[in-house]
Nucleic acid binder design. Structure first.
Length: 585
RNA sequence: GCCCCCGUAGCUCAGCAGGACAGAGCGGCGGUUUCCUAAACCGCAGGUCGCAGGUUCGAAUCCUGCCGGGGGUACCA
């Protein structure tokens, strides 16, 4: 059930009946009303249509209405202002739709008729570095998009393109060779790796202290030594390769722990190292096809006069991440045959992706949508981007711990009667949910200022608010000793006896609009905005009308059905965001 | 220099393939509890949508210029 789609289909028919060619272009102008005074949906197409046909919009609007076969679903449409067509859904129609949705696990959201294959590239942290808040966005947004596209019936392949072959490994190898603590390594290798990484970073900073920014690395003996270790690794040096093989599982275990806590899973974890053996051949192929050329000792692809060329092999013979990314495109195309590959990556890499996509097209990959799903930076309190090397980034795990700690404090205060382990479990779900929601509820393209209080807020438009609404509904069912399944089975038209109930019904039926918007624009905040409206609509009912003590039995069942649907919608919506619910809180 | 993004209420942000008086959260002020969880609800205050032009019946939304901020820009990823 998608109300908007239904309305648009009716308008399409009406426009066709009026001999208007290509009606599709006008159907976007049918949308939810900007103000509930104007009804539930409004069609703004008479004005542009009037201009195109050279006819008065209001007359045209009247003609369109005359050809609409919407009597069952809407009240008689009204024409307003310059030619707005205002639509108000009939309450009995809304009630009937709810009845249809009630037994459906998908709550009326239909799967797409033509599933597509999406490869989603997200999270992709550099291993051997602690994850920080900057990694959160990619990880959480990517996970949400994967869940959402999958729910809509698409084939989704998630791939964590780890940075497991870069300079940070040179740093680790250098650290291992010079500063390792054997005992610590045996006791807790992950922690020791972290110590070594931080230590080497510190050494580099010390060594480079006097150098200028530009020549820092050239003038920095420690950085130079690290680069040498990286080069040896890439050249296949047995000792470094062996060290890499030893360290990788430790690094992965560290990442895995955080992903488990965030309930994030990948179908594949094919890092940069996986593509290393293919790079020589990729460059050869691009040269042979005349896509790449030699320039100043490097192998590059010239794109246009405005841009510097993309380098796919450096003067010293080393490959760049452009090379790796090209190899990755080819591998994914051959193995998964996707219709789309989405890269959920920081907007600062937009030039890189622009170049990557252009080269991929020249290479022959034209029948695939390559999309950079970019997002803004996390800014520090000074409104400047948090950068790892500035050391200003908050480590992810510390963030999660703090979130859970705060949630725990509130649980302890509000529900001291619950057993200890229960409260801990609730705090985990609420805390992690707060962090995820704070990120997902914002338009991903915006930068945002990192702020503990905001990110961990538990009031306003937050996961906690939704979880709370959910828990309260579950509490109603517990109090009344009512089984939701029975309420769903009663095939009786719900009674929308008040404006609040009618409004809630309307929002319940808009779930698919929200999900489809989120999927088509790759923007989770459409789902959070929807949940916020829904939860508000529910609270308005809950606050003003008794449910268990409704005036009569029919109304009681009717309201319980609304409750049940609301709870399931919240759970489903939060689920798409990768956020859990609890029965009590 | 060139390219990209951003500038909306005290703060953080929605809205931007043009549409009906610009929205929300937080913060501030004031209310609501014999009632299904007050992690809730209701009300009030608060905005020249950076500035100036332009296109349009209609511009926060599109175009141009300017101001301010961020990012990127041949061998880091």
């Amino acid at each position: 059930m998608n109300v908007l789609r239904l309305l648009r289909e009716h308008f399409r028919q009406a426009l066709l009946a009026l001999n208007i060619s290509e009606p599709e272009q006008y159907l976007d102008l049918i949308r939810p009303t900007s103000d509930s005074r104007f009804g539930d949906y409004q069609a703004n197409l008479a004005m542009p249509l009037g201009k195109a046909l050279g006819r008065p919009p209001r007359t045209l609007a009247a003609e369109i209405i005359a050809h609409l076969a919407l009597d069952e679903a809407t009240e008689p449409p009204e024409i307003a202002g310059p030619g707005f067509i205002n639509l108000r859904l009939r309450s009995d129609w809304l009630a009937r739709q709810l009845l249809h949705v009630a037994p459906d696990d998908r709550l009326g959201v239909t799967a797409v008729s033509v599933p597509q294959t999406f490869v989603l590239d997200y999270s992709s942290p550099n291993v051997a570095k602690p994850m920080h808040v900057g990694h959160l966005r990619s990880t959480i947004i990517g996970d949400c998009l994967a869940r959402t596209l999958r729910f809509l019936g698409h084939r989704v392949i998630t791939d964590n393109h780890l940075g497991d072959w870069g300079t940070q490994f040179g740093m680790l190898i250098y650290g291992y060779k010079h500063y390792r603590d054997e005992q610590a390594l045996r006791r807790d290798p992950v922690r020791e790796m972290l110590r070594l990484y931080v230590l080497v970073r510190e050494k580099i900073r010390e060594a480079g202290n006097t150098a200028e920014e530009d020549e820092e690395e050239a003038a920095n003996p420690v950085a130079e030594a690290c680069r040498l270790e990286t080069a040896k690794l890439h050249a296949g040096d047995p000792e470094n390769l062996e060290l890499w093989r030893r360290m990788m599982p430790w690094c992965l275990a560290e990442l895995e722990r955080i992903y488990r806590r965030l309930h994030i899973q990948f179908d594949y974890t094919l890092g940069e190292s996986f593509y290393h053996p293919m790079l020589t051949e990729v460059v050869q192929d691009l040269l042979q096809r005349g896509i790449a050329t030699y320039s100043e000792g490097a192998v590059v692809v010239f794109l246009n006069d405005q841009q510097p060329p993309a380098i796919i092999r450096k003067r010293d013979g080393a490959y760049t991440y452009m090379t790796t990314d090209l190899a990755t495109v080819r591998y994914r195309m051959e193995r998964f045959r996707p219709e789309a590959i989405l890269y959920v990556v920081d907007f600062r890499q937009s030039l890189h992706f622009q170049q990557l996509f252009e080269i991929a097209r020249r290479w022959g990959y034209k029948n695939v949508r390559l999309e950079h799903v970019s997002f803004g930076s996390v800014m520090g309190p000074d409104r400047k981007p948090i950068k790892t090397r500035e050391g200003g980034a908050v480590e992810l795990e510390a963030l999660l711990d703090e979130a859970v700690r705060r949630a725990r404090a509130i649980v302890d205060m509000n529900s001291p009667e619950l057993p200890e382990d229960k409260r801990a479990q609730i705090a985990e779900v609420v805390g992690i949910g707060a962090v995820k929601y704070a990120d997902l509820s914002q338009n991903r393209t915006s930068d945002y200022v990192f702020n503990w209080d905001k990110m961990l807020a538990m009031d306003g438009n937050t996961a906690t608010y939704m979880q709370y609404a959910y828990a309260r509904i579950r509490s109603v069912f517990r109090k009344g000793d009512i089984c939701p399944e029975e309420i769903r089975r009663v095939q009786e038209m719900p009674r929308l006896s008040t404006p609040e109930e009618r409004n809630l019904a309307l929002w319940l039926l808009r779930l698919s609009e929200a999900i489809e918007n989120a999927a088509s624009e790759y923007r989770p905040n459409h789902i959070t905005a929807y949940l916020w409206e829904l939860a508000n609509a529910y609270h308005a009912v809950y606050q003003n009308h008794p449910i268990l003590k409704a005036p009569d039995e029919t109304l009681r069942r009717s309201r319980l059905l609304l409750c049940d649907l609301t709870a399931r919608t919240i759970k489903l919506g939060l689920g798409l965001l990768g956020i859990g619910t609890v029965e009590q809180m």
